[in-house]
Every structure is written in structure tokens, then in C-alpha cells.
Simulated scan of single mutants.
Amino acid sequence: MPWDGKIISGEFDKEVNEFIVQQVKSQTTKSILNKKQTDKLYRYLKSHENDKDGQVITLYDQMFLSLSQEELQSLIRDLEEIQYMYH
């Protein structure tokens, strides 16, 4: 099932209970997040949501993407929506 958020977009595979990330901001990627990984990422970002300088995330452990505080809040909301997809 395709899904588009403000920061990330991808597809949720109900059969294997995984979210396939296809785009972060404007960068194309392919990463798979299971429920545990999504929860862990959400908790980390939630604990840093008030960092005034935002956060930096990586794609493929090579490409750094800077997230402003506003983008960080949007990503947290995206992850909250994705969490509801898992069973």
C-alpha cells in the first residue's frame, strides 16, 4: 500500500509487516523498516524533538540529510502514522 508523508514516502507491505522507504525529503532511497526499527527511530527523534538545530540523518550511511526543527516535527508525525500500519 503506497503512502506519502511530509518527509518520507514509501510503501507498506502488510504480508511481511514492513515499511519500504522510497524517498526521504527529495532523495530517492530504498530502506526497509520493521516495527522495532520504526519504534526505535521514533523514540530517538521524539527525545530530540526540541533540539533547536534540528537533526542530521543518513541514507546508506553515506549521504547526510539535514532536518530543520520543523522537518524533524514532520518526520515524527510521519513515523507516528506509519506505526499504526504495523500489526
Rank of each mutant, 00 (worst) to 15 (best):
M1H: 10
P2E: 11
P2G: 00
G5C: 06
K6R: 13
K6C: 04
I7C: 05
I7R: 05
I7K: 02
I8W: 13
S9M: 08
S9E: 09
F12R: 10
K14L: 03
E15L: 02
V16Q: 10
E18Y: 14
Q22R: 15
Q22M: 14
Q22C: 13
V24F: 13
V24E: 05
K25P: 05
Q27D: 00
Q27L: 08
Q27A: 13
T28V: 13
K30F: 12
S31T: 06
S31H: 11
I32M: 04
L33K: 00
N34D: 10
K36V: 06
Q37H: 06
Q37E: 13
T38A: 14
D39H: 09
K40E: 11
K40I: 06
L41I: 08
L41E: 07
L41W: 10
Y42P: 03
Y42H: 06
R43H: 09
R43N: 13
R43Y: 12
Y44F: 15
L45I: 02
L45V: 01
K46I: 04
K46A: 03
K46H: 08
S47A: 09
S47I: 02
S47R: 04
H48T: 11
H48A: 09
E49R: 04
E49L: 06
E49I: 08
D51Q: 08
D51H: 01
D51R: 01
K52A: 06
D53C: 00
G54L: 03
Q55A: 10
T58R: 11
T58C: 10
L59G: 04
M63I: 10
M63K: 14
M63F: 11
F64M: 07
F64E: 15
S66N: 11
L67G: 00
Q69R: 07
E70G: 08
E71W: 00
Q73T: 05
S74M: 13
L75H: 10
I76V: 08
R77C: 12
L79A: 14
E80F: 04
E80W: 02
E81S: 09
I82G: 04
M85C: 01
H87S: 14
H87A: 13
